[in-house]
Design a protein around this nucleic acid. Structure first.
Ligand SMILES: [Zn+2]
Ligand SMILES: [Zn+2]
Ligand SMILES: [Zn+2]
Ligand SMILES: [Zn+2]
Lengths: 161, 161
DNA sequence: ACTCCAATGTTATTGTGTAACATGGCTTGC
DNA sequence: GCAAGCCATGTTACACAATAACATTGGAGT
């Protein structure tokens, strides 16, 4: 059992279920979930936290799946475009999507003390920024919504008040 | 005249007014708006767009105000902490605050075609993410809200539809 | 004058991300 | 079968972003 969001959950099935779903989705959409891509997604699911591209590359290299940066970045680009992975801009890191399948505008809560990340729904375009965009004539295509603060665990422990 | 947000405005007075206000605020708060810091803010106001730290450093170097990365980063750190400048995480770039004075949670609209940036208010904690945070027991301290898309000008021109 | 502290100067290094080009392997049309 | 094309991968080299660590300067306070 590990953390999903800030809650405990059945991690083994979460990994295998998500991988199966990704395979099915790729088969249906004509996308190719190649060994490297599949393994990168699996790494992100196993570790279940935000990882830098070079962290991932390190694991890949240890397994003989590629040792140069473009290998990791290309796999991540594919996974992000396919919606299986999100990039956390604030951390320059990547995390497996917690709501795969649904098309959604992700939002994240990032603990500055323990670096855990939880994914929520944003639908930002509906709020104040959506109004501002409409007023300005700006067409929103994608949103980055990231809240930084303290997770429940670190709050309870009193870490970094 | 140049762009503020996506509107034209009186740029000369916008630069000098903001600089004066920053000076006044620093004097009152006991902060030191040194020549490098002041010049970095002025560069950001003049160019009126998001600039990378190395872009700024280039200008500084040409003026003999410092030629090494830490010079630019230290000035930017100061200006960001003081609230005169925001970092755009999506672009790894910095932009002068368009609402100086008010304490606020900034939100940005970033044109993917011409790279212009407009600042709006977010008050994100009030929306859906605020509810999710409350439900999860997460304490939000800071928010990153950045919308990417097409600005009115690029839409009208049909750039990068 | 001496001390302290904040700001700056400088060197070196680490971290993040891409451009460009070569190779391999599968598919598709002939 | 075979050539052409396409997509993924391998590899080199580089560009851009950020910080660590240490030396130096210069004013404020005593
Ligand atoms: Zn997601
Ligand atoms: Zn935490
Ligand atoms: Zn602002
Ligand atoms: Zn534009």
């Amino acid at each position: 059992m590990a953390l999903l969001g800030f809650e405990r959950h059945d991690h083994d099935s979460c990994v295998s279920d998500t991988l199966s779903a990704a395979e099915a989705h790729c088969a249906e959409a004509g996308l190719r979930l190649t060994p490297v891509r599949r393994r990168v997604l699996e790494i992100l699911l196993e570790r279940h936290r935000a990882l830098g591209a070079y962290d991932i590359l390190e694991t890949l290299a240890a397994e003989g799946l590629g040792s140069q940066p473009p290998v990791a970045y290309r796999a991540l680009d594919f996974l992000v475009k396919a919606g299986f992975v999100h990039k956390i801009e604030r951390l320059n890191a990547y995390v497996a999507c917690a709501h795969p399948g649904d098309s959604h505008a992700p939002a994240f809560m990032i603990c500055r003390s323990c670096d855990s990340v939880a994914e929520a729904q944003a639908s930002l375009a509906a709020g104040a920024l959506g109004d501002a965009a409409k007023a300005a004539g700006f067409r929103i295509e994608r949103t980055v919504v990231e809240a930084e603060g303290l997770c429940p665990g670190c709050l309870k422990r009193g870490d970094a008040t």
